[in-house]
Design a protein around this nucleic acid. Structure first.
Length: 111
DNA sequence: TTCGTGACCTAGC
DNA sequence: AGCTAGGCCACGA
């Protein structure tokens, strides 16, 4: 970082906050992009969350699969490998998913 | 800086 | 239930 102002710091900080919140999402729980953004302190930044997750390295241990859209579905094309992967990971955590791909919302009680 | 794009969201039909 | 249209906001070329 040779110079300039420091918008870098703020950007990193935002990402760190997002990652922290995402890492805190317990297994068997799902959140929407919008919810995650709000939880991280950035309301109306759902698309930004999606962009961040896309840029996420594969080795990351962040539970990206617990993030779904407001429609209650995976945001990947149903035919894509990522789609199947996400659903598999969620089912492995006990999340109920209908044959049409609809993901059951969090039930207060168990878990 | 303007423009195009997107792992989004909500409202309407 | 599914599709469309408009809105939103950040990012990269």
């Amino acid at each position: 970082m040779t110079n300039s102002h420091q918008p870098d710091t703020a950007a990193v900080s935002a990402a760190e906050r997002l990652y922290t919140v995402l890492a805190a999402i317990p297994a068997g729980t799902v959140v929407t992009y919008g919810q995650l953004a709000a939880l991280a302190g950035f309301p109306r930044r759902a698309r930004w969350v999606g962009q961040m997750l896309q840029r996420l390295p594969e080795g990351s241990r962040l539970p990206w699969h617990r993030v779904i859209n407001a429609q209650g579905r995976s945001s990947f094309p149903p035919a894509s490998p990522a789609y199947a992967r996400q659903l598999q990971l969620l089912r492995a955590e006990g999340v109920v998913i209908s044959p049409s791909g609809r993901i059951a919302l969090q039930r207060h009680g168990l878990n």
